[in-house]
Structure formats: C-alpha cells, structure tokens
Amino acid sequence: MKFRSVLLSCFLCMGILFSSCSLNKVATKAVANALSGTGSSDVFTGDSDPELVAGALPFAIKMYEALLSMQPSHQGLILTTGSLFIMYANAFIQGPAEMLPVEAFEEKLIQLERARLLYLRGAAILASGLEQKYPGWGDAYEKGVLDKYLAKLKKADVPFIYWHAAGVLSAYAMNPFDLDLGMRLPELTAAIARAYELDPDFNSGALDDFYVLFYSSVPEGMGGDPSKVELHYRRALEKTKGLAPGPYVSYATAVCVPAQDYATFKSCLESALAIDIEKDPPNRLVNILSQRKARYLLDSAPDIFIDLDP
C-alpha cells in the first residue's frame, strides 16, 4: 500500500513538472525522498514471488534513473539506484545464468557479460555518490591519500562502500584478466575494512558474508586470507540468528567446493533449506533465491565433486 501511494504521488507529480522550474525541483525531491527512504526497498526484498520482482525491477530501476537525472546529488537516490543495479544483476541475471544447462553455454556467456556490465554500472553510480560527499575520493588511492579519506567516513557511508565493493568485485570475478579492476583490489580491501570498523553488524552480517567469499576467493597476495574465513562464517550465522540461508550457501560454494568437502557441503545446504523463510519477512525474496541456489547445488553435486558417485 505504501509503495502504491508513492507511485501515485510520482505520476501526479510528473503531471505538473513542467509548470515551473522550482515546482519541478520540489516535486522530484519529494518523490525521491519517498522512494529512497527507510523501508522503501521492502516492497521488493519482502516479496514471495521472485518472478514478479524480476519483471518489475527493470521498470523500477529506470524510474529511479530518471529521478536521479533530475536530482543528481540526492544521496538516497544514488544509493538506491546503484544498489538495485547490483542486486538485479546478481539475483536475476548472474544467478539464473549459472544454473543454465551445459548445452546453453553461449547463452550463459551472454548473460554473464550482461551481469558484469550491470555490476559496473551500479558501482559507477555509487562511486559518484562517494565522490560528491568526499571530493577526490575517486583517485585518492592512486595519489596515496586513501587513508585520509577513509578516516572521514561515517557509519552512514557503509552501505555505499558495501554495494560499491560488491559491484566491482562481482564484475572482477567474471573476468579476472581485467587488470584495471584487479589494480583496485587493495583500495576496495581497505574500504571494506573501514566499513567493518564503522558498522560490523551492517545489514545483519552482510559484511561477514562478504568476507567469507572475499577471503576464500581472492589470492592472498591481493587481500585474500583463508585463515579468516571460518571466523566470519561463524559471525555471519550469529548475526543472522539462523534465519538466512545465504551464509550456508556462501560457505558451501566458496570453501567446500574448492576443498572437495562434500560432507560439509551437503550439511551446509541442508541447513540452508531447513530455514523457515517466513520468520524473516523483510528478507523473504533473497532467502527464497538462496534456497533455490542451495537446491540447485545439491542436485548438481555429482558434477561438482570428482569422487562423488552419481
């Protein structure tokens, strides 16, 4: 109901945008505040129908982009628009592409490239927000002054850092030969570490889940550290209070598959599937998608583990 009323306000405002320049700014700012305020994303993340959200998100993203073009300095719009690009790329482009059958190899490559470009698009929007708040942020690492900028960050900046790093690193994971993105790993590592200092409980352990994937996947010389994976995995489980399948799926894919540890892999995914997603309504959508991935991984185990008898 809240989202529908906001949309109605949006369309009403669009009808009067051309009456005056000042009214244009007031109207678009009011809509921007409503669409990027606290709880505005629950209409997507709390939905129980992934296909419905997958169909609605492209329109929503373009609407946010249109508003952002009229309010380019609106921090709430920057965060919402950038993070939606990254969420959409992960949940509805990369995720389904990775589950395509072997015979759809060419289509898989096309979709993964599309996801990579969307990741970078979202990350660029978020980077613009950080640059607006902290002029010079974009080239601070190259100039050797990143520490000075990191010291300025506040708790409110953590979502920007998290989603920006997630977008860049997701794009890099799809093409490890991208030297430009690879050169940015130390910068992203330092920024995420600062974000963890400011808000270690951000989004119920999202940073810990991030670290499970980061420390286990990135080479040690570039910031990876396998010795820290177990610590952050346990913290992620603790902070999500056992209500999120995500940490189990992350550990199964990032740790158990490379180690060819099928027993732990199976245990993690069964734990993910045993979670009652109705106990965490605001995160219903992401939990449904995580459980879908868990089922897919269990079904695909014979293709993943060398010694497993089909």
Results as ranks from 00 to 15, higher is better:
267 S>G: 03
306 I>G: 00
86 I>C: 04
60 A>N: 09
142 E>P: 08
103 E>L: 06
92 F>H: 12
290 S>F: 02
137 W>R: 07
64 Y>A: 10
57 L>Q: 07
176 P>T: 11
4 R>N: 13
185 L>T: 04
141 Y>L: 01
245 P>M: 01
1 M>F: 08
197 E>Q: 15
250 S>Q: 07
266 K>L: 11
221 G>R: 06
121 R>D: 12
287 N>W: 02
91 A>V: 00
16 I>R: 06
179 L>E: 14
243 L>W: 03
183 M>S: 12
177 F>V: 06
266 K>W: 02
247 P>F: 08
304 I>G: 06
35 L>Q: 10
142 E>C: 03
17 L>Q: 05
1 M>K: 09
8 L>H: 10
44 F>R: 02
107 E>L: 14
59 F>P: 01
108 K>G: 07
189 T>I: 00
184 R>Q: 15
230 E>L: 09
187 E>W: 10
161 I>Y: 03
214 F>D: 06
200 P>M: 09
41 S>F: 00
256 C>Y: 02
96 P>Q: 08
125 I>V: 15
296 Y>L: 04
261 D>N: 14
185 L>S: 04
239 K>F: 02
227 S>Q: 11
174 M>L: 15
37 G>V: 01
257 V>N: 02
166 A>L: 09
20 S>L: 02
220 E>Q: 13
154 K>E: 15
275 I>L: 05
46 G>S: 15
210 F>C: 01
88 Y>I: 06
6 V>N: 12
188 L>K: 07
277 I>R: 09
204 S>W: 05
124 A>S: 14
90 N>E: 13
267 S>E: 15
48 S>P: 01
171 A>V: 11
289 L>A: 00
127 A>P: 00
134 Y>T: 02
171 A>E: 06
70 M>L: 15
153 L>N: 10
225 D>F: 02
5 S>V: 05
3 F>H: 14
130 L>E: 03
282 P>I: 01
281 P>L: 08
100 L>P: 08
147 D>R: 07
60 A>H: 14
154 K>M: 05
155 K>S: 12
298 L>K: 11
138 G>C: 03
133 K>L: 13
265 F>M: 06
134 Y>N: 07
5 S>H: 11
41 S>N: 07
78 I>N: 02
131 E>P: 02
57 L>M: 15
38 T>C: 00
162 Y>I: 01
298 L>R: 11
140 A>C: 06
197 E>N: 11
139 D>A: 08
70 M>R: 12
257 V>P: 03
36 S>C: 04
243 L>K: 15
281 P>H: 10
66 A>Q: 05
24 N>K: 13
234 R>D: 08
179 L>S: 09
117 L>G: 07
37 G>I: 00
279 K>Q: 15
25 K>I: 05
130 L>Y: 05
176 P>G: 04
137 W>E: 05
69 S>K: 11
147 D>S: 14
101 P>I: 06
52 L>S: 13
